[in-house]
């Protein structure tokens, strides 16, 4: 079973390792991520102003072109997933806006495309038990804290991804890989998102609270599914270190990187060079590299 795939602009550049590991793991798991032929940026935020039709056009164009190539589209980045899925819901629900969008992008999209996140494929189509069997190097002893952030879960009625207060999908995925999933209360709180551009020190505070809570609950590493969150909780650890001297950084993985380690991907594809906090010492310590 192959899946139409929308990588998103950051996965082409600053989050290349996220994209690479996903593509290769899919092959090992027996399905292929067929990239969409021509796609544009998804707009990075779902427009909250009700009169902002302009901002709906990029995701609508993606939905329309994807629908011409297949019936299901999958994404990796939580923000792309949120924007595309919410736009899809809006088109399904609001006929008046749908016609406006269609006549602007000169397409006739009716909202009948299924928008999936990569984790949903792993759970529903592959199945975590089967995934567990396919794991070559179980991440035994790796205490990893799954960080959901906001865009995967909220708004709850539209995303319908997992429970909005105590999601469990990520933890099941990590347990399937043999790692020990660490529960921590800040896993659904916000990393500061685009505030790293607006008020960077506020974003640093948010990241510090999340990391602090995970470490306090015994986490050795964090796992994320969004380049925005990864930037805020991985790259900003140096700023945090300056402000909070007793803070000791922990590596932040994309979930597909951990999947790659478990599936025995080679070092090059795992792309740890793009990680800010170097994860190699930890992986070596756990005997995984």
């Amino acid at each position: 079973m192959d899946y139409l795939y929308f990588p998103g602009c950051t996965l082409y550049t600053k989050a290349k390792n996220f994209d690479q590991t996903a593509r290769n793991c899919s092959l090992l798991l027996g399905f292929e991520l067929k990239e969409l032929k021509n796609w544009t940026c998804c707009g990075a935020t779902f427009p909250l102003a009700t009169d902002n039709i302009m901002a709906l056009l990029p995701p609508s164009r993606i939905l329309a072109t994807a629908r011409e190539e297949g019936t299901a589209l999958t994404t990796l980045c939580a923000i792309c997933f949120n924007v595309i899925k919410r736009t899809n819901r809006l088109i399904q629900g609001d006929v008046e806006k749908r016609d406006k969008i269609n006549n602007f992008i000169e397409k006739n999209y009716q909202g009948d495309l299924q928008v999936l996140h990569y984790l949903e494929i792993l759970k529903k189509d592959i199945g975590f038990p089967q995934l567990k069997e396919k794991v070559k190097k179980p991440l035994a002893g790796l205490k990893a804290a799954a960080y959901y952030g906001c865009m995967l879960l909220r708004p709850f009625e539209e995303m319908e991804f997992d429970d909005k207060e105590k999601p469990a999908l990520f933890e099941e995925f990590l347990e399937a890989l043999g790692a020990k999933a660490i529960e921590f209360p800040y896993k659904i709180e916000c990393c500061g998102s685009f505030q790293s551009v607006g008020s960077p020190d506020v974003a640093t505070e948010c990241a510090y609270k999340i990391l602090g809570s995970a470490i306090k609950n015994g986490a050795e590493a964090m796992v994320s599914t969004c380049p925005m969150c990864t930037f805020n909780i991985d790259h900003k650890q140096s700023d945090i270190k300056q402000k909070y001297l007793d803070f000791n950084p922990i590596p932040v993985f994309y979930f597909t990187q951990l999947l790659g380690v478990a599936m025995g991907l080679d070092y090059q594809t795992l792309g740890f060079d793009q990680n800010a906090v170097d994860p190699i010492p930890l992986l070596k310590e756990k005997g995984l590299l």
């Binding site: 950051t10 600053k14 989050a15 990075a44 935020t45 901002a55 998102s193 685009f194 925005m228 930037f231």
Partner: peptide, 25 residues
């Protein structure tokens, strides 16, 4: 926000998502 006031090397470090959503907001 004023883009010229970004610190040195900021543009290279920060992922595009932050810019696209930040500039929109």
């Amino acid at each position: 926000i004023q883009i010229p006031e970004f610190p040195e090397g900021f543009l290279e470090k920060v992922p595009q998502i932050a810019f696209v959503s930040g500039f929109r907001k």
